[in-house]
């Protein structure tokens, strides 16, 4: 399921991308615990601003492609060489060069399907999850969400910090087991 929201948090909203990116960079430098950023479209280079590591999906897909190819080759050997060999025009039973195309296609298909599932897993996407954070987060608003945590990260101090970083709108919320 989606990540649960902290019980109390302060959210700052921006419409200007540059101001938001500057604020997000400052927030990361300030080491706010549980900092989350929302953007309505993919912002080029923003993963570096937020310090995200390169996604693991590429490696998972590479493994899936190799496993798909190996599984297909194994299946062809099992079906056409070991258990049900049929002589067709004198071609050898073990003909890997003639299987190259379906092996390639199967490998790529395996990669594609695993890619989708890996994306669902990485983004915590679940069929039937109907929750909506703020409708404008998929429209024209950028958001930084800062959890309230003790004296140092109080609602007042976080709101002041967001205001200092030119947030257009600031909202403080208290939730019980809410989800973004």
């Amino acid at each position: 399921m989606a990540d649960p929201l902290p019980k109390t948090y302060v959210a700052g909203f921006w419409t200007d991308e540059a101001a938001f990116i500057a604020a997000a960079g400052s927030a990361r430098d300030a080491r706010f615990p549980g900092l989350t950023a929302f953007t309505p479209w993919p912002v080029h280079g923003f993963e570096d601003v937020m310090g995200h590591k390169r996604s693991y999906i590429g490696r998972v897909v590479m493994v899936a492609v190799l496993v798909g190819a190996a599984a297909c080759l194994h299946f062809f050997v099992q079906s056409s060489v070991m258990e049900w060999p049929i002589n067709v025009s004198g071609k050898p039973y073990f003909s890997p060069q003639l299987w190259l195309v379906p092996i390639l296609e199967t490998a790529l298909l395996a990669g594609a399907l695993v890619n989708l599932l890996a994306c669902f897993h990485a983004c915590k996407l679940v069929p039937g999850d109907l929750t909506v954070a703020d409708p404008r987060l998929t429209d024209d608003q950028f958001c930084l969400l800062l959890p309230v945590d003790g004296e140092r990260y109080s609602v007042e101090s976080l709101s002041r910090w967001l205001s200092d970083h030119n947030a257009d709108r600031i909202e403080a919320k208290a939730t019980e087991a809410a989800h973004v």
Binding site: F38, F46, S55, N115, C123, L125, P127, A133
Partner: peptide
């Protein structure tokens, strides 16, 4: 939409995918 939220982490994985 399967609960798509558009966090920076989501976009990082999504773009790679």
């Amino acid at each position: 939409a399967m609960g798509w939220k558009g966090t920076s982490s989501d976009w990082n994985h999504y773009e790679r995918s």
